[in-house]
Amino acid sequence: MAEPAIIADQRAPDGGFVPDLCQPRAVLAVVVGAQLLALLLALAQPLEADRFWPRLGLWSLALQWVGLIGTAAAVWLGLLPAGAALLGWLMAPNLMLTALVAAVVLRLTHLRHAARIHAQGHHRARLEPLQALERG
């Protein structure tokens, strides 16, 4: 029988619904997926040539860590009889923490944007009289 082409179709040896994430192909898919996401996130930020590679490295490190540890946790929890319930209990605090961090980041982004708008208005208010003097 030919090997399934899609990783999600590779079932665990016990016939469970969790794919066999211990296979090298599955680990490679997690690593490549995390790296592509890191590249996408690094490119999504304002492009500064001297900061791109350190930013990509940090994104890569964080996402590889999360991807591989998450895969290992899924494999470990898949071996336990109550793995799904335990995974739910483990994910709830992580989701709350993620929501909290996202809220803080959105607030800081909003404050930064408001400060930038305020500074632009202040600079414009100082520049207009000077330009009026130059014209008149």
Rank of each mutant, 00 (worst) to 15 (best):
P81S: 10
L130S: 15
A102C: 10
P93M: 03
M91N: 12
A85K: 14
A82M: 08
R124S: 15
G121E: 04
L79N: 07
Q120H: 06
L127N: 05
F52T: 04
A44I: 02
L79W: 09
L61E: 14
L63Y: 06
L63G: 07
F52M: 05
L108G: 07
L63W: 06
W65N: 00
M96S: 05
L58P: 01
L80N: 09
I117L: 10
L56N: 07
G70N: 00
A82F: 08
G70Y: 00
W53P: 07
L61A: 15
A44G: 11
Q120C: 03
E128V: 09
G78A: 10
Q45D: 08
L111N: 10
I69C: 11
A119S: 07
T71I: 03
R116I: 01
L86H: 06
P129I: 07
L106C: 11
V101F: 07
R51H: 12
I69D: 08
P54Q: 03
A73I: 06
L106K: 13
A119C: 04
W53G: 11
D50I: 10
G70Q: 02
L108A: 06
G78N: 13
A114V: 03
R126V: 09
A82C: 07
A84G: 02
A102T: 09
L68I: 13
A49R: 15
L87A: 15
P81Q: 09
A82E: 12
A102H: 05
Q45S: 10
L40V: 05
G78W: 10
A38P: 01
V66F: 14
E128G: 00
H118V: 03
F52A: 03
G78R: 11
V75S: 09
L39H: 01
A38W: 00
A114G: 03
I117Y: 01
L58Q: 11
Q131C: 02
L80W: 12
P129D: 07
M96I: 04
E128W: 03
A74M: 14
L63H: 06
T98L: 11
H110C: 07
N94P: 03
A84D: 05
N94H: 10
L39C: 02
L39F: 05
T109C: 08
Q64I: 08
S60P: 11
R126G: 13
Q131S: 04
V66S: 13
L130Y: 14
R126C: 12
V75F: 09
P46H: 00
E48K: 15
A99S: 07
A125L: 04
L68A: 10
R55Y: 00
E48D: 15
Q64Y: 09
G88L: 04
G78T: 08
Q64M: 10
G78V: 07
D50Q: 15
G78D: 08
A92I: 05
L80V: 09
A132Y: 06
Q64P: 01
L130A: 15
L111T: 06
H113A: 14
M91T: 14
G88Y: 01
T71A: 12
A73W: 04
Q120L: 08
V105H: 12
I69F: 13
L56D: 06
A102D: 06
L77E: 13
L87K: 15
W65H: 01
L97V: 04
W89H: 00
A115D: 12
R116S: 03
F52D: 04
I69G: 05
W89T: 00
L80G: 07
G88H: 02
A42S: 11
A103Y: 01
A125M: 02
A132W: 06
L68F: 12
L58R: 10
M91I: 13
G67L: 00
